[in-house]
Amino acid sequence: MEINVKNIVITGVTAGLCLPLALFAIILVPIPGLPAASGFWIPAGFYFVMTLWFGIWGALGGHIATTLAMGYFFGYTLQVWADGGLGDFIAPLVCFMIFKIAKADPELKTRRDYAVWVVAVLISSLVCGLWVHTVNLFFGVITWPFWWVGVLTYFIGDSLAVLIVGTPLLKTLTGYVKTSPMYAWSE
């Protein structure tokens, strides 16, 4: 895959937008017992939308932002990259894949589009929650009794953030983004 200027800028801008939001999310809605976790992962709403518009490069931006923000609290280590960083790369891509397979429109024009959006967000948040907290458990960062707490809070926190923040963004701005050649569905 050849990397071009557009890909770099999409990744950089998504990461730049999500980095301060990730820091705010960790500070404003911390989860007792889970370091560097948030009960309302605000940046997810943005990088899910960016991924639906611009494909893998939006997810990569989310991945960089999460790695830098979580690493700040939790250390720039392999563990942070492997759990939060990689997890937040996988989640929007799962959502993107579901959208592609279901041939839904990110502008959410029909009820079917809405249904696909909600289901895709729930599935991808669950996949990501399971990934993140299983990696945390393997690295000994959380204890087994806190694993399900982590998965559940991640699932709820991520799904709520993506649905509450992402839905108005998709509804109001997809039309504007569609006019750009960067839009992932234009090919």
Partner: peptide, 18 residues
């Protein structure tokens, strides 16, 4: 270089977005 540029863009734009 493009990776360095992307990471730099993330840091630079994070302060701009704030």
């Amino acid at each position: 270089y493009y990776l360095a540029f992307t990471v730099n863009l993330a840091f630079r734009l994070s302060t701009v977005f704030m």
